[in-house]
Structure formats: structure tokens, C-alpha cells
Design a protein around this nucleic acid. Structure first.
Length: 498
RNA sequence: GGCCCCAUCGUCUAGUCAGGCCUAGGACAUCGGGUUUUCAUCCCGGUAACAGGGGUUCAAAUCCCCUUGGGGUCACCA
């Protein structure tokens, strides 16, 4: 499989289960997965559920479902206990208080007794004065004795990390050296009033204890990184490598949100986008291989992926590109596959009932074969085959145009109906065998000196209510004799109303 | 607003690190043509970009600086 093997590489995808699995999160997971597989490393899933207010069980499930849908199996994580569990951050939190105590002992952290009110006030003042919005280190002045006494007396406090003097350089694998002055960083809270640790501290503990070697995450975490690096150093832990990948932007630029349509991977799953299409789509937002190849399957990506080819600028979400990829991969699938995928959608649409499935199977497979190359995701099949199940009540816009253009074609259509009715009995009418029907049409137009289109187009409009369908005679053969003649009998209504 | 990141066709990008091979390549979208009973597919072709300004250099899309623009981040959220 992979040429280089570095069993020591360990990466994690660490989503917080608030809401849904965002498409950007899925791409982060993908990049982590590819990096791990490429280097023979370990891909870990860690659920960062420490925000008790917002973390939900459905959101956790959505993460599992989303990753499985995309085929990104984790090596360690919930349901796959390894030697570095637990894999829910909430269960790991208690173990980090000792690190906090250690830091306090060493003078690298201190208790802060400031009230939220004072902090709010301070922020307001700084904001009004256009100063840096930062804690003023008032409690750093407290003596250890004072601090201990007040804590013992039960006075509420948080613990802050004492940011040292100097500057930190993060050597990001994608961005290069990112230089930050420590005076830009405030003494961040690492332990809350209730004794639990805050995210920035917990990730450091988690990443260290889980042996994470490479942190691959969204660029929105870039400004957190110097703080975390400082924490690693204060704790005496080795600092992992970082790679901050660009964000996925909304079509107009800016943050991609529900306002722009589906952003949750489960949405795409439900719509029936093929996982291979999603993978290809996601990976190409921010990563490329060369100036030739656009189509990549997961195994090939594992071989070809590299962080060096991840771009630095944000990528706008382009639904058209997804649709293209969706349609492309749909065409690659076998008819058998497609039938399996499509039937649930047909049943949901009420087109087939369980009881009729076996009897109808042949016809259904034929119509799905015709429709397969015309959809970008499985759910689109419903509108694509609707006319097979429902007689058209009205004509769509295109069909209306066709009828108007062929106003004088009604007699031709009716002659064809009569001719077919006479010449093609039920036994000769075989689904999937359009030749008889086409022969009848060609015979007729030959006697009238017309083009095939002069008959076929209005015929299609009347039979399906549409101007665009798969091959007309194939459609007719599948539709069946009774349905065709029934629909054709209504031809003059459509011509009359057009 | 402070700090950080980014900047090639409408979009995703190749080329930038190791300056010349770039009259800037590909894909999506778009426009035109071919095939076809329509549509889709498929094939052929077109339009379309180095944000602006200064440097450095024999030579800059590529290196440096400034400007502009976009994004991120500044919580007892993660």
C-alpha cells in the first residue's frame, strides 16, 4: 500500500458535537485520514464534547454517520477502543487538574479571583480606549499565601496561564513560520470556576497523552496555536507538528452556513450523493495533485496525498462542481448498484410498493438504466422517472413549446397512436425493445414526408409532459401499451390547451 | 479596531519554495459546433486570470516592500 511507513504518526479528528458535521469538518477529517493512511499512521477520532450546554447525542451520531458514509474509518475512537482512550474529551477532563496544580506550583499559572463583572468592565474600558482587549494581570500580584488562603476560604476562582515574555514561532507545515509576540496573548484561563479545564488546555493534555504527532485542523485554529504551543512547553511536553488547512468559503465568499444550502454531510448523504463523489469534491477544495488530474478515488488519494500540495487560500464551495462529480461517479456505477440505491427513493416517493417490487423489477431496472446517466445524486431519480408512474396532467414549459412549434402535428400523433394500436398487440410490446415502435414511427413519417422529430417531439410531450426524456421509443416500451394509448388518447387536450 | 493568515481565468487549481522551459496549463461553469427523435452523455473549438504600485535582477506570476482586497481570531465555547 503505502511506500513510506512511519508507524509512529498519529493524527486526530476532533470535532465538537454541536449541531451537525459540517462539510468543512468532513474535509478536515479526510485530510487527517489521508495523511495517516499515506504514512501508515493512526487516524484517531476524539469527540470534544466538553461544552455540556451545546453537545448533543444526535450530533455525536451525525459525526459517526458522516464519517462512515464517506468511508473514513477511524483506527481509534468511540467504538474502537485503543490504548489511548477514552475518546470522549468529557471523560478525559478530570485527569488534567493535576497539570493545572503542577503549573501553579511552578509559578507558571495562577489563581484569578476577579469577578466576571470586573472582567466585563475591564473589557469595555479597553475597548473604549481602543486598547488591546486583555486581562490586566491583577491577580498575578497576589502572593502565594494570599492566593492559598482565599482559595481555602472558598472564594471562587479560575486559573490562568501566565504567558511568559518573548515570542513564539509556529512552524506550520502548510503556512511556514508564523510569528507571534507574547504580548499579544493574554493570560488565558485554563481552569474554570467549577474546576474543569478549558478547551485550550484540554487539547494540549489530550494531544500529548494520546501521542498525537501531527495536528491537522482548520485555519480558524491558527490563532489558538501559539497559546497551545506555550502550554506544551510549560508542561514540558514535546510540541506536535501543525498543519492549518484553509477554510471552505460560501459561494459569495465569507462563512459557509445553512443560508447557503446544505452544509451538513448528512444532507448530502440523504440526497444520495455517492461517497466517492463527495470525497473527490472535498479533497479538491484545497488540494491538488498536478495540472492534469481531477478524478481521484480514495485508494489513489492515499497514495498521492501530501500536505505540501495543500493550498493556503480558502476555497469557495461550488455546487456545480459537486453536481458534475456526482453525475460522473453515478455513470461509473453499475446498473445493479444504482438499482439498489434508487429503490428506497422510489418507494419513498410512492412509485412502487414492496409487494409490487418483484413483479415490477424488470421494468424498474430498465427505467433506472435510462435515467442513471442523468442524475447527480440518487434522490434526483424521483423527478427523473416520475412520468413513468404518473400520467402527465400538464405539460412542462419545454413540452408546451414543442406543442406550439408542432401545432399541426396532432393528426400525425393520432395516426401514430392508431397505427401502433393496430400493429403492435400486447404480446409484441416488450419493455426494453423499442424497435417495433420506432419502425412504426418511421413508416408513418415516410408516407407523410416528415422528419422523425416532427412526430417524436410532440409524441414525447404528450406521453411524458416533458421535452427532455431518455429515448422516446425506449420510454414507450417501458411505459407499456395500455399507458401509452391512454396518454395518447389525451393528445388533443394538450394540443388544444397549448 | 489589535493580531494572524491569504491573494493566478466567474469557481477549484498547476506553475511560486530551487527566477528564464509561461505569448500562464488543466478542470467546473459559460459560449459555439458535431453526434442524436429531445435531453443527458460523448467529441471538437472559443471567451476568460498573474489585485495595484514600487523595488532587486540580464530576466519576476515566481524574490523583497508598500497599498488594496478577502478571511480568521480576540469567551469561565470548542
Amino acid at each position: 500500500m503505502s511506500t513510506k511507513t512511519s508507524p509512529s504518526i498519529r493524527v486526530r479528528f476532533a470535532p465538537s458535537p454541536t449541531g451537525y458535521l459540517h462539510i468543512g469538518g468532513a474535509r478536515t477529517a479526510l485530510f487527517n485520514y489521508l495523511f495517516a493512511r499515506k504514512h501508515g499512521g493512526t487516524f484517531i477520532l476524539r469527540i470534544e464534547d466538553t461544552d455540556r450546554e451545546r453537545s448533543t447525542q444526535p450530533a455525536i451520531q451525525a459525526i459517526f454517520d458522516g464519517l462512515r458514509y464517506l468511508g473514513l474509518e477511524w483506527d481509534e475512537g468511540p467504538g474502537k477502543e485503543g490504548d489511548f482512550g477514552p475518546y470522549f474529551q468529557s471523560e478525559r477532563l478530570p485527569r488534567y487538574t493535576r497539570y493545572v496544580d503542577q503549573l501553579i506550583q511552578q509559578g507558571k499559572a495562577y489563581r484569578c479571583f476577579c469577578s466576571r463583572e470586573r472582567l466585563d468592565e475591564l473589557r469595555q474600558r479597553q475597548s473604549a480606549a481602543k486598547d488591546r482587549i486583555q486581562y490586566d494581570r491583577r491577580c498575578l500580584q497576589l502572593s502565594m499565601d494570599d492566593s492559598d488562603r482565599r482559595a481555602k476560604a472558598g472564594e471562587p476562582f479560575v486559573v490562568r496561564f501566565r504567558v511568559p515574555e518573548g515570542a513564539t514561532v509556529v512552524d506550520d507545515l502548510i503556512r511556514g513560520k508564523v510569528h507571534v509576540e507574547h504580548k499579544e496573548i493574554e493570560d488565558l484561563i485554563i481552569q474554570r470556576g467549577d474546576g474543569t479545564c478549558v478547551y485550550n488546555f484540554a487539547v494540549v493534555g489530550d494531544d500529548h497523552e494520546m501521542g498525537i504527532t501531527h495536528v491537522i485542523r482548520g485555519e480558524d485554529h491558527l490563532s489558538n496555536t501559539p497559546k497551545q504551543v506555550l502550554l506544551f512547553q510549560a508542561l514540558g511536553f514535546p510540541v506536535p507538528s501543525y498543519a492549518h488547512i484553509p477554510l471552505i468559503l460560501a459561494p459569495g465568499g465569507g462563512k459557509l452556513s445553512k443560508r447557503h444550502g446544505a452544509v451538513a454531510v448528512t444532507d448530502y448523504h440523504e440526497k444520495g450523493y455517492l461517497p466517492e463523489a463527495m470525497i473527490n469534491f472535498l479533497v479538491r477544495m484545497g488540494w491538488s495533485f498536478d495540472d492534469k488530474q481531477e478524478i481521484f478515488g480514495l485508494p489513489e488519494l492515499i497514495e498521492k496525498f501530501s500536505l505540501e500540495h495543500v493550498s493556503k487560500s480558502g476555497a469557495m464551495f461550488d455546487l456545480k462542481k459537486l453536481e458534475y462529480l456526482g453525475a460522473y461517479y453515478m455513470r461509473q456505477r453499475s446498473v445493479g448498484d444504482f438499482v439498489q440505491l434508487a429503490i428506497p427513493y422510489l418507494r419513498k416517493a410512492g412509485f412502487v410498493r414492496e409487494a409490487d417490487l418483484e413483479r415490477e423489477r424488470g421494468r424498474i431496472e430498465m427505467m433506472l438504466e435510462l435515467a442513471k446517466s442523468r442524475v447527480a445524486c440518487v434522490s434526483q431519480i424521483v423527478d427523473e422517472v416520475r412520468f413513468f408512474f404518473e400520467d402527465p396532467a400538464i405539460l412542462d414549459e419545454g413540452a408546451l413549446k414543442v406543442i406550439r412549434k408542432h401545432k399541426e402535428a396532432l393528426p400525425l400523433v393520432e395516426q401514430y397512436a392508431a397505427k401502433v394500436a393496430a400493429a403492435v398487440p400486447e404480446e409484441a410490446w416488450r419493455p426494453g425493445q423499442p424497435a417495433v415502435l420506432e419502425a412504426q414511427a418511421r413508416e408513418l413519417i415516410a408516407t407523410q414526408g416528415a422528419q422523425l422529430g416532427d412526430l417524436a417531439q410532440p409524441l414525447r410531450a404528450v406521453l411524458t409532459g416533458r421535452s427532455a426524456t431518455p429515448g422516446l421509443f425506449e420510454v414507450m416500451s417501458i411505459l407499456g401499451r395500455a399507458a401509452c394509448l391512454r396518454r395518447l388518447a389525451k393528445a388533443k387536450n394538450f394540443f388544444g390547451s397549448a
